[in-house]
Simulated assay, not measured.
Amino acid sequence: MIDNIRENNAFEADATRDEDTMENKFLTFHLGQEDYGIEIRHVTEIIGVQKITDVPDMPDYIKGVINLRGKVIPVMDVRARFKLPPRAYDDRTCIIVVQYNGTAVGLVVDEVSEVANIARDQIEPPPRTSRGKSSRFFSGMGKMGDEVKILLDVERLLYDEERLSAGLVDQA
């Protein structure tokens, strides 16, 4: 019994340490001319584009599903989600597999850049604007030297329509 408690405490300490090492870390990527970031704690892996099976009656930004090591996961084209012009997939196009609330989703992006450390005091709230509904997906603006990375809110990116229909999101 005591050994189990020790093992559990060691596991919890490791999990806390792992969580601490992920704090302020963002996987950055390009979409068009802009740089975006997503909290690294949500990222499980990055893969190349593979065959995407089309699924009827899905929103236009859901490209379909892929079979990832025996697990079927939906794939979202982030360009389409942001209503950016389409672009042919090439050898730099990647799928970022994220996990949120026990659900895995692949996010198609133009190109993955790096894992960046952005301190909390270098993150500002996103600008308030009624134009461009894409801004509702932003959690903040991360300053890195002369550059700004648009930081995404994974929950809103994945579930915003459900939140809208449930009345949980301001539609402005």
Rank of each mutant, 00 (worst) to 15 (best):
D14H: 06
T16W: 11
M22C: 15
M22P: 03
E23Q: 11
K25E: 07
F26W: 14
F29G: 00
F29N: 02
F29A: 01
L31P: 05
E34L: 03
D35I: 14
G37Q: 00
I38K: 10
R41T: 15
R41Q: 11
H42L: 07
V43R: 05
T44N: 12
T44G: 04
E45S: 14
V49E: 00
Q50D: 06
T53S: 09
D54Y: 14
D54S: 07
V55W: 00
P56W: 05
D57M: 14
P59C: 08
P59A: 14
D60P: 10
D60N: 13
I62C: 03
G64M: 06
G64Y: 04
N67A: 11
L68S: 10
L68A: 06
G70T: 04
G70Y: 04
G70M: 11
M76P: 01
V78T: 04
R81G: 09
F82R: 02
F82W: 03
L84S: 02
A88P: 02
Y89K: 08
D91G: 09
C94I: 07
C94Y: 06
I95T: 12
I95Y: 13
I96S: 01
Q99M: 08
Y100D: 11
N101V: 10
T103N: 10
A104E: 08
L107M: 12
L107N: 00
V109L: 02
V115A: 11
A116Q: 15
I118D: 03
R120P: 15
R120E: 12
Q122H: 15
I123Y: 11
P126T: 11
R128M: 15
T129K: 10
R131L: 15
K133M: 15
S134R: 09
R136K: 10
S139I: 13
S139G: 13
S139H: 10
G142S: 12
